[in-house]
Design a binder for these strands. Structure first.
Lengths: 238, 238
DNA sequence: ACTACTGCGGAGCGATTCACTCCGCAAGGC
DNA sequence: GCCTTGCGGAGTGAATCGCTCCGCAGTAGT
């Protein structure tokens, strides 16, 4: 019954694999929608498909697990926001947090599974809390009055999927990834400023490099020597 | 050589088919990215695949055509915006127009084809015009100073793909589609207000119906009688 | 009435990709 | 030496892919 240090290390590795799987699954499901394939998920997680199927009964089960986690995130985030002394600041934090988590990005896959009934009532309650929070943000003078809770939910969904971040993620360059996320953060702040009733703070970080618009068109796999030069241009795509 | 009225009517129908094809192709490519299939495009356009292949050599050729049209839209839009007497208003119009056109949404398919060289230089010139426009919008006091041209391009791409609009489009309900687009328009205005240096106008239209969040989960095809009732809930997906 | 022509839908083709199974391997415990 | 645990990925039939091609409907010409 004793648990050796090796066993602990092994279990830790298992847990890391599991987390990588869930993270990769969320990314691929979000990016590819109903066309997401288990092979793509396993590859993105850096594991074999066998590992995926040892933990989940199939694609639908994995998706359902992600749904539950996402619901939990929403419930926890609304609760935390409601506890914030300043409703408007609490709402802003909630928006940033939810956008960066990708709240709402799993939507197009609902054909895969039906609702996990275990959390549907909790989510409904969280939605009510959220509406209350929006009302309080109105009353405290922080949130502009012509914006509704529905507007904000739509805004979160709208910002959750970022073409820039998704495309740059495929390049696998961590530094670039950080830049892309920082660039999106600026967009979020712009939107938040659009939500504000009054004053305005500076945009965070330094301005995004225009290279962000071109670097992502680089090929993932360098081909033979001499053919590796690819002119990147926004004109490639639009 | 005389052209009869029937022939004219026939050609008009052909032209309508062609436009439906392009419109559907843009929608499907934008929604499904690299997983977009020609069958899906033809079905969305309401034509057979044969009709698609009579006009285009293949998927790549169709995509390339869309790229060229998109480039032309960008070139024309930047030119028009540069001609606007008020740079800030011209920029705002450009943003709204480009977002609703879906400028930037074809990006993930670049593997299909290489750049259509015919317009790459024109696009580069349009990009320069755009940067100039942003500078002028800064100088005239309309655009907040810490926002760059890159920020705005990213913003256009970010708002171009709308989960709400895409999902509701699949329902095929025109009235609902109009509502969804109006709701997105509000998000655009919120973002534009976040870009503004000073004052602020009211959000356009009436607030979006919360039903927008649930209606889109309805099944597309009603099943047998008695099984048609589907509880729609945001909890289904997040 | 008959033929020629045009634009069309979609059945069908081989090739590819899908979700999923299963087996051999590596590494530590006993 | 043998068992257990966790793993990667080749292999499976089924489904879907891009694309071709044929039969059909409607009109013009004779």
């Amino acid at each position: 019954m004793g648990v050796s240090k090796q066993q602990e290390a092994r279990q830790a590795e298992v847990a890391r694999n599991d987390e990588a799987l869930l993270r990769a699954a969320r990314r691929v499901f979000s990016r590819d929608g109903e066309h997401a394939s288990v092979n793509a998920i396993a590859e993105a997680a850096g594991v074999g498909v066998g590992t995926l199927y040892r933990r989940y009964n199939g694609k639908a089960a994995l998706y359902e697990r992600l749904l539950i986690l996402s619901n939990q995130q929403w419930i926890a985030a609304t609760r935390a926001a409601a506890d914030h002394p300043d409703p408007w600041q609490g709402l802003q934090d909630l928006i940033v947090q939810s956008v960066e988590y990708g709240q709402g990005t799993l939507a197009p896959l609902r054909k895969l599974t039906s609702v996990p009934a275990q959390s549907v009532e909790l989510v409904a309650a969280a939605d009510r809390d959220f509406t209350t929070l929006v009302d309080r943000a109105h009353e405290c003078g922080g949130l502009r009055r012509d914006v509704t809770a529905t507007d904000i939910v739509l805004l979160i969904e709208q910002l959750g999927r970022s073409p820039l971040v998704e495309q740059i993620q495929e390049l696998g360059d961590d530094a670039l990834d950080t830049q892309a996320r920082a660039a999106r953060r600026r967009l979020i702040v712009i939107a938040l400023d659009g939500l504000a009733a009054v004053q305005r703070a500076d945009l965070p970080g330094s301005p995004p490099s225009p290279r962000l618009l071109t670097t992502r068109w680089k090929r993932l796999t360098a081909r033979g020597p001499g053919a590796g030069h690819v002119r990147a241009s926004r004109a490639d795509v639009l």
